[in-house]
C-alpha cells in the first residue's frame, strides 16, 4: 500500500494516535469510532504500554478496535467502579466528543439552549466529564468542525477548560490538562501563554481559512501552520488490515 492512497479518516486516526505519544503505561480511553481506531494505532506502534478497554468491563490487549473474531485477550477486569478508581488515580487519558467547546477547552455535551431547569435540547448529561477533566489528561474529537461546536461560550460546562482550572488554583489545575482537539479538518492545541486554542496543523487539502471560518471564535493561528502528519506505510497496513478492516472510520469522516 502506497502512502498516496491514504484517506482523510486515516490522517484523523494518526492525529488521535499522536495525542497519546509519551503517555506510557496509562489507560488510553478514546470514546467514539475514530478515537478508538487512533488509540489502537498508537498502541500498535509507538506507545506499546497503553492499556485499552473493550468498551465494556475489560482491558484487552487486542489490536482490533471493534471486533475480536479470535476472542479477547484480557489483561484486567475493569467494571465501572474500577474505572472511577483509575480516573481518580490520574492514570488515564480520555478522548470525548463535545457538542460545544470554547477557546479554553470548556466542553458541553449535557444540554443546549433554554435554561438548566428546562433545556431546549437535552443531550447526554454530565456523564464523567467533570471528573475526567480535573483528574487526568483529556483530548477531544470533533468529527464535524463547525461554528456551532466551536463557540464563544458553552451552555453547560461539563468538562472544565484552562481558564476555570486556573481560576481555582492548584486544587483544580494540578492534574488538569486538555492536550489536543482533533477534528476532521485540523489539530488544535493549547500551547499559548494563557492556554487559548491554537491551530497546530491542518490536514492535507485543508486551507487555514477553512478552519478559521468553521470556528466560532478567534483561533490563534501561527504564521506557519504545518500539515498534519501523514500515515506511514506501516500505519496504513495496521489500519486497513488489522485495526479497522471494515473501515468504520471512513463512514465517520468520508473523503
Amino acid at each position: 500500500m502506497s502512502v498516496e492512497s491514504f484517506a482523510r479518516a486515516d490522517v484523523c486516526a494518526v492525529a488521535i494516535a499522536e495525542t497519546f505519544r509519551g503517555d506510557g503505561e496509562i489507560l488510553a480511553n478514546p470514546i467514539g469510532t475514530i478515537p478508538m481506531v487512533g488509540g489502537r494505532l498508537a498502541r500498535a506502534t509507538f506507545e506499546p504500554d497503553l492499556m485499552m478497554t473493550d468498551g465494556e468491563a475489560a482491558l484487552i490487549a487486542n489490536d482490533e478496535a471493534f471486533e475480536w473474531p479470535d476472542g479477547k485477550v484480557l489483561e484486567a477486569w475493569n467494571p465501572y467502579r474500577r474505572m472511577f478508581d483509575i480516573v481518580w488515580s490520574g492514570r488515564r487519558h480520555v478522548i470525548m466528543s463535545p457538542t460545544q467547546i470554547d477557546r479554553y477547552g470548556n466542553m458541553n455535551f449535557a444540554a443546549i439552549g433554554g435554561d438548566l431547569a428546562q433545556p431546549k435540547v437535552q443531550l447526554l448529561g454530565l456523564r464523567g466529564a467533570p471528573g475526567n477533566t480535573i483528574c487526568h489528561p483529556t483530548s477531544y474529537w470533533v468529527g464535524n468542525h463547525n461554528a456551532k461546536t466551536f463557540v464563544e461560550q458553552v451552555d453547560v460546562v461539563c468538562g472544565i477548560g484552562y481558564d476555570r482550572a486556573a481560576a481555582l488554583g492548584p486544587v483544580a489545575s494540578r492534574f488538569h490538562e486538555i492536550r489536543r482537539v482533533v477534528t476532521n479538518l485540523c489539530v488544535i492545541d493549547f500551547d499559548t501563554a494563557d492556554h487559548r486554542m491554537r491551530l497546530r496543523s491542518v490536514h492535507p487539502g485543508v486551507a487555514v481559512g477553512e478552519v478559521v471560518e468553521a470556528t466560532g471564535f478567534e483561533l490563534v493561528v501561527p504564521d506557519e501552520v504545518p500539515v498534519s502528519r501523514l500515515p506511514t506505510d506501516e500505519e496504513l497496513r495496521l489500519l486497513y488490515e488489522v485495526i479497522d478492516p471494515t473501515n468504520l472510520r471512513g463512514k465517520e469522516v468520508p473523503d
Binding site: 481518580w88 454530565l126 467533570p130 483528574c135 460546562v157 482550572a165 481560576a167 481555582l168 492548584p170 486544587v171
Partner: peptide, 26 residues
C-alpha cells in the same frame, strides 16, 4: 472529592457545598 470543581455541577445543584481539608495542601 475533586470531581465537580470548576464545572457547572454547582449551577445544576445550587445546594452543593465545598469543604476545606483540615490537612495541609500538597
Amino acid at each position: 472529592t475533586r470531581v465537580g470543581l470548576g464545572s457547572d455541577v454547582f449551577r445544576l445543584d445550587p445546594s452543593l457545598r465545598t469543604v476545606t481539608s483540615p490537612y495541609p495542601g500538597p
